[in-house]
């Protein structure tokens, strides 16, 4: 019987400091046992429990795309016990990975649509996964226009610089990276995510939005999309709640009758409008 509590052993194959404040580190894991990578078959939007033996587990969104074979990538903010411990680990260390958990973004039902992807801060992780996946030659033709809005407070707090600067050179995705205030050496956009969204969002016809970011960003971006005519069915979000099992069993992460871990974390705004705001 499969034991969904048991992590696959993984080795830290690469780690890098992601942001200038050093609060974010990106980890690439390789599976220790051959065959485990196939069992960990995932899609963009899913998450995993990162397991540090003796310390505990934390749910973290998967930042790599399933098309990037050989390793799985996560970006971890230093917050409390487990995440701080991870910030002191080294390449080569053994830990565990449990999942994939949750549901991915509805990439199949989004086929044929224009898509605007809106990210704030380090919540960009699963959206990086989504964009990498969509830009694959075999996937790109399935979607219309792709627009990417990404903001952080300062240039040094933007994640995945290598990725989005490559995307900026392409003509099959419109990339709008913005920072909150003018900063030395920054020649890109300046302004908050909601304002940039208002400026660049495509007309709502046949278009869906995926938003991930801190609560304030979501709070002010939703009305912008509503005003632009986006229906709540076409606004897709990913929730975070405190988690333990990730399996819909331990009870902790529920929002109404739904478990964020098992039934989410991806929900449409119209689904969320029917549920208590307990997240």
């Amino acid at each position: 019987m499969h034991n969904p509590f048991l992590p696959y052993p993984v080795r830290i194959a690469m780690l890098r400091v992601e942001t200038e404040d050093k609060n974010l580190r990106t980890f690439k894991f390789e599976f220790v046992n051959p065959g485990d990578e196939e069992k960990f078959a995932y899609m963009p939007g899913q998450f995993a429990e990162l397991s540090v033996p003796g310390q505990g587990e934390i749910p973290i969104g998967i930042a790599s795309s399933p098309t990037e074979k050989g390793s799985v990538m996560f970006t971890v903010n230093r917050v409390g016990q487990v995440s701080s411990y991870m910030h002191n680990m080294k390449e080569g260390d053994i830990m565990g990975l449990r999942g994939p958990l949750g549901h991915p973004y509805p990439l199949d039902t989004l086929e044929g649509k224009n898509i605007i992807i809106i990210a704030g801060g380090f919540a960009v992780t699963t959206l990086r996964s989504t964009i990498v996946w969509m830009l694959q030659p075999e996937n790109r033709p399935k979607y219309g226009r792709i627009t990417f809005v990404y903001g952080a407070r300062t240039p040094g707090l933007l994640c995945f610089k290598d990725d989005w600067s490559e995307w900026q050179k392409r003509d099959d995705i419109d990339v709008h990276v913005t920072i909150d205030r003018e900063a030395p050496g920054w020649s890109g956009k300046v302004g908050f995510v909601p304002a940039v969204t208002k400026e660049v969002c495509p007309p709502p016809e046949n278009t869906a939005a995926i938003i991930c970011g801190p609560p304030v960003m979501i709070k002010f971006t939703q009305p912008v999309l509503a005003e632009a005519g986006y229906s709540p069915d076409n606004i897709i979000m990913s929730l975070e709640n405190r988690m333990k099992c990730g399996l819909g069993i331990c009870g902790r992460c529920n929002v109404g009758p739904e478990y964020v871990c098992k039934d989410g974390p991806v929900f449409t705004l119209s689904q969320l409008n029917q549920l208590p705001r307990e997240y």
Partner: peptide, 9 residues
């Protein structure tokens, strides 16, 4: 049926 998961070492 709710539970917490904790490590001890």
């Amino acid at each position: 049926h709710c539970f917490d998961i904790q490590d001890e070492q």
